[in-house]
Design a protein around this nucleic acid. Structure first.
Lengths: 346, 346
DNA sequence: TTTGGCAGTCTCGATCCGCGAGTGCTAACT
DNA sequence: AGTTAGCACTCGCGGATCGAGACTGCCAAA
């Protein structure tokens, strides 16, 4: 790691100008362009000296000797930490987001899918949305349906009308009538608790017939363990947007990335590693642990439901992206999602 | 359309050889290669004459004057209709498919997702799987959950443990107790019927209190119309495989295709247009109505559940694909899927 | 009808070259 | 000391050129 060279005001401005220009043109930025577009008071020679320094300290690089400069990952990092200006999302964008969410179905799944779709639409990148952890969600309703004599379908209605199902095999045959009675009882005891909480409170169940109690224990056990081992689902949308970015003209880049997206497990663990120091977290290029993301950046934030942080939402795009704008739009969609989820009832 | 020229035996063999060779090498096939590899008894000059004829009748084409021949869409069509030999899936492939399905969850959704995953794995193409039409599925269980006084969550458990939900707003407040009673009643009347059938049989409901009856009518109405307007969901997997095919090195091709895949609606209508004359249907290149599929082929079949055809399963890949092998594997996975679905109970 | 021979066509890759963009350095200037 | 003008130099890019190689189409002979 290079020593943390503090940058004087002018170097900062030049770095900022390079990043800004490069993100829109996609071409290495030369000293003359900088002098003409951003620093009319300075000559190109002066800027050349500064640029050479910025290359020396690792904030910029040259693709080849006679080319302009482009930011390094370190340069982008400095930019997003200290130089980036907040950009409010445009009214047009706001309207789009609002309209799209109005047509969203009234279920958590539907809303998150819509969020992924909208986010990829407004950022022109790939969007990522993690579904809430089921084990942390409050249970609103339980239903038990007899499938075969010894097999029961458990239906959990969680807050936000999220429905989870699982099939459990019992040791002995149980008829629907008994199941319905147990379900009624469970609904009274269990309402408003999370699956996590449930596991500790078996003793609170009233003293029923031992046989029924055994079955209920079996069901609850099944609910808690089943939910625990289920891994986080990661939705994504907008791969088509990525194809338009010039950095992906050679499909080699894309291949590793697609693999990551299509087998959500690895992606989930990457997202879980991100620590949220601020409201929006940015991971740049090689800061990513995964090799498929070496030339990409993540812009992530969280969304809430029932006043608790429930999942991650963000985008994945080329390192050369318009960070200020993307941050604003990710934030916008995150808030919109939280809002819609809040109105879903609980 | 060219007149349907009948091909003599030798022309057929040559066409077959061209298709076979081209699908594995990806290079235009020349007369010398054909003479050496497939027709030792003939000279290259003879083959050249035949090739010229096949170009004239539209079965082959030349990328440029001094190149070998490649099949046209028409050539592929003739190949798959008359020349293609059935290829049994290898034991390795069979084992893979079997093992993957063993670890599949016991729900329709889970199994179809697994089917998509396996199919893309064994064919190295993009897999497509349509979910069964909900409106045609038999209802196994109905549950009504009160969310707010005037809003009710309807949960439908369909055959194969497929769960569908929807929220309905009622004109007047209804308490959970009443809802539970209605649900119990509905469960008796409704069991084993499809949503489609349901709509015609309102009159079979026993004469209840008019008020309740109104609510139930409202619920059933909501179920039938809601399901009707819901469009078919199309799962897909394995886009990463496509990136490895040389025909997609230029991303332009991919872009349109990705768009198609990511907005399932158009894709669904394409799949619905396919008519199944045989067990496996193949749509080649420009036979596709959608421009995004002009350079692709579809290999499709159906899968069954409860002895009825319930959905389409297949792959989409470059026109230059190993049809014999792909057909065998699509068929294999389709059968495996149907088997697993059959054991799901109903 | 088939075949050998042959001239002709076309692509592909390598090489070359000049243009233009941009740099680094030096010396002069403020 | 910082800034600037000037200049020689480097390097990538695009276009032009060219030869090798792969095939073909055609013709005349078998």
């Amino acid at each position: 790691m290079l020593e943390p060279t503090p940058l004087d005001e002018r170097k900062q401005q030049i770095l900022k100008a390079v990043v800004s220009d490069y993100t829109v043109t996609g071409m290495p930025v030369g000293s003359q362009v900088l002098a003409a577009k951003y620093f009319i008071a300075l000559s190109s020679a002066t800027i050349r000296n500064e640029l050479a320094d910025l290359v020396g300290t690792g904030y910029l690089q040259q693709p080849h000797t006679s080319a302009g400069r482009i930011p390094t990952d370190r340069g982008y990092r400095y930019f997003v930490d200290f130089l980036m200006e907040a950009e409010a999302a445009s009214p047009t964008i706001r309207r789009t987001v609002k309209q799209e969410f109005e047509s969203a179905p009234r279920s958590v799944d539907g809303i998150l899918e819509k969020a992924a779709m909208v986010l990829s639409l407004v950022t022109e990148n790939v969007s990522l949305v993690t579904a809430p952890e089921v084990s942390e969600s409050r249970i609103k309703h339980i239903d038990l349906v007899s499938l075969e004599p010894q097999s029961v379908l458990i239906i959990l209605v969680l807050e936000g009308n999220l429905i989870k199902q699982q099939v459990v095999h019992l040791e002995r045959a149980t008829i629907q009538e008994d199941l319905s009675r147990m379900a009624a009882m469970l609904n009274q005891k269990v309402k408003g608790q999370t699956a996590d909480e449930l596991s500790g409170r078996l003793d609170q169940l009233g003293p029923d017939r031992a046989e029924q109690r055994r079955i209920i224990e079996r069901l609850i056990d099944s609910i808690t363990t089943h939910q625990a081992q289920r891994q986080t689902v990661v939705l994504h949308d907008g791969v088509r947007n990525l194809l338009r970015h010039p950095e992906f003209v050679e499909v080699g880049r894309l291949e590793e990335l697609m693999e990551l997206l299509e087998q959500g497990a690895q992606l989930a663990s990457i997202l879980q590693q991100v620590e949220f120091d601020k409201d929006v977290e940015i991971v740049i290029g090689r800061e990513n642990t995964s090799s498929g993301l070496r030339e990409c950046s993540l812009v992530l934030t969280t969304y809430k439901m029932a006043d608790r942080v429930r999942g991650t939402i963000g985008v994945i795009g080329p390192t050369r992206m318009h960070y200020g704008q993307v941050v604003a739009r990710v934030r916008l969609v995150s808030h919109a999602t939280s809002d819609v989820l809040a109105h879903l009832g609980n």
